[in-house]
């Protein structure tokens, strides 16, 4: 396929990123993204919040500020009470309000399976767009949310997770990446992406491919939801984690000393995961301080970019 383009496309399909970016003036570029999925929690209000936080995240990952959004709905009208849809939309709207985003429209279709998400538009200065690609050797990697939501969601599906952990992970997934993005704006960040379906190493691989550099992850420094490792050991691992591992196996080298459960977490598909930020070593500690000040408590330096041209991810 050939994709038409023009000189104002800053980020398009030639090197896919978290969202598309189009320059409007020398001061303003438009960021556009769309994301929707089927329910991952039972409570419709929280599902609405999580779906909205997940869709908004791509704008934050590009270094932008989300401004307007439209609802996307697929709803099984014949089988499901319309009150459920109402609660989902309320959850989404509350999340948009929290993010300072205006809901300006939407579209719904009748569907056999419930789906909800948003199309989001945001702004960014054309010179401040954060892509996945601009890595520099020696950069530190910072992750802003703990890993393991896919494994915990599998345990929830199996009816094996406690009420406490369900509530914890629900709030985690519904949490905006806004504070992390705001903290990032004050520091010389080189690259950024958000962690979603491909898992930490899948998204890190997207950053590393084509960079001519490699990455090193310190497994002991990873923020991980504690129960995730325990559930992984019991085999409560989503199928997507195995697919992610298979897809990227050839460019990943994991030390034997890394616990098997932690290895699973590295490939665990995340819902509304945190930002993965790449920043110069001199600025990394300052960014961590800013993140903590903004309440992003779980943020941690998890590794670095190394000048090894093989484009490999080493986990030690």
């Amino acid at each position: 396929m050939t994709f038409p383009t023009d000189e104002n496309v800053i980020v398009g399909l030639h090197r896919a990123d978290d969202a598309g970016v189009y320059k409007v003036t020398d001061e303003i570029a438009l960021i556009q993204t769309v994301d929707f999925f089927t329910p991952i929690v039972d409570d419709p209000y929280w599902f609405g919040q999580i779906a909205a936080a997940n869709a908004l995240s791509d704008i934050y990952a590009m270094g932008g500020v989300p401004k307007t959004a439209m609802n996307l709905v697929g709803f099984p009208l014949k089988r499901m009470d319309i009150g459920i849809l109402r609660k989902i939309l309320e959850g989404g709207l509350d999340k948009m309000t929290e993010a300072g985003v205006v809901l300006v429209g939407g579209h719904s279709v009748e569907d056999n399976e419930l789906k909800y998400g948003l199309s989001v538009t945001g702004f960014v200065h054309p010179d401040k767009v954060l892509t996945k690609g601009a890595l520099v050797a020696g950069d530190r990697l910072i992750l802003t949310k703990p890993l393991g939501t896919g494994i915990i969601n599998t345990a929830i599906k199996g009816g094996l997770a406690s009420a406490e952990i369900i509530e914890y992970v629900t709030r985690l997934m519904a949490g905006l990446n806004r504070e992390a993005a705001e903290a990032m704006a004050d520091h010389p960040v080189h690259a950024c992406t958000d962690i979603t379906g491909f898992g930490l190493l899948g998204h890190l691989a997207e950053m590393v491919v084509g960079s001519g550099l490699s990455a090193e992850i310190e497994s002991a420094d990873l923020p991980i939801i504690p129960q995730a490792v325990e559930y992984a050991a019991m085999g409560l691992i989503p199928g997507g984690a195995y697919k992610n591992r298979e897809f990227r196996e050839s460019m990943v080298a994991i030390a034997d000393s890394v616990d098997r459960g932690i290895q699973d977490v590295l490939f665990d598909p995340q819902t509304s995961g945190g930002l993965l930020i790449c920043i110069g070593a001199d600025s990394a500690d300052a960014l961590i301080s800013s993140l903590r000040e903004k309440g992003v408590e779980d943020a941690a330096i998890i590794g670095k970019i190394i000048s090894e041209p093989a484009e490999t991810i080493h986990v030690i």
Partner: peptide, 13 residues
């Protein structure tokens, strides 16, 4: 493959 790995892990524990 995913189910195989998961069941093996569970039986192991």
């Amino acid at each position: 493959e995913a189910s195989k790995e998961n069941v093996l892990r569970f039986l192991d524990t």
